[in-house]
Amino acid sequence: MKKRLPFSFRETANCAILKILEKEVLCMEIFQNMELFSELIRCGGNIYTWCYDADGTLLRSNCPDDVFLSGVFDLLGCKQQMLEHGRNHDIPVTLGTAIGLLWGAAFEKENDHLKRAWVIGPVFYQNVTIRIKLS
């Protein structure tokens, strides 16, 4: 007489599929929540949101000049700082530059490994208007 296992292959496959679907739904919820957040902060001005993967590839942004500003973020060393911080810490970080640009980054992790970095900015933390001194 054959012993029946407490679960069937079909039940196991169904559970695996459900777990994959749950992850996909959670991922979609994160992106939808970030889209809503992006829309809300844009009500206060031109502050943009960015999403980078663990390797620093830009996945999405609501910035119309995303290629240019992402390049600035990289050129000024902020992207590398963000990735290093995200790999080693769970807490958000503020990234600033000598010219007064500021970004904030928070991290999404999976099994203690960096999955995505969510960035808001840039904003200027100093007045950047040009002042002309008349002699």
Rank of each mutant, 00 (worst) to 15 (best):
M1D: 08
K3L: 11
R4I: 13
L5M: 14
S8V: 03
S8H: 05
F9E: 04
R10P: 01
R10V: 11
E11Y: 00
T12K: 15
T12H: 13
A13C: 07
N14R: 11
L18W: 06
L18R: 13
L18G: 07
L18N: 13
I20W: 10
K23P: 02
E24R: 15
E24A: 15
V25T: 13
V25D: 03
M28V: 09
M28H: 12
E29Y: 04
M34F: 12
L36P: 00
S38P: 02
E39G: 15
I41P: 01
R42C: 02
G44T: 04
G44P: 01
G45P: 00
N46K: 14
T49E: 00
W50C: 05
Y52P: 06
D53H: 03
A54F: 14
G56L: 04
G56F: 09
C63Y: 11
C63P: 06
D66R: 10
D66A: 09
L69H: 10
S70R: 01
S70V: 00
S70N: 11
V72A: 04
L76V: 12
L76F: 09
G77A: 05
G77W: 06
Q80S: 15
M82P: 00
L83I: 12
H85L: 07
G86A: 11
N88Y: 07
H89D: 06
H89W: 05
H89V: 02
D90K: 14
P92A: 11
V93F: 02
T94K: 10
L95E: 07
L95K: 03
T97N: 01
A98C: 08
I99W: 06
G100A: 07
L101G: 00
L102N: 08
L102G: 05
A105V: 13
E108A: 08
E108R: 15
K109M: 06
E110I: 07
H113Q: 15
H113W: 07
L114M: 00
R116K: 09
R116V: 01
A117Q: 03
A117L: 04
V119D: 01
V119C: 03
V119W: 01
G121N: 04
F124D: 02
F124E: 01
F124R: 14
F124N: 08
F124T: 09
Y125L: 02
N127S: 04
T129H: 15
T129R: 15
I130V: 14
I130G: 05
I130L: 11
R131W: 12
R131T: 13
I132C: 10
S135E: 11
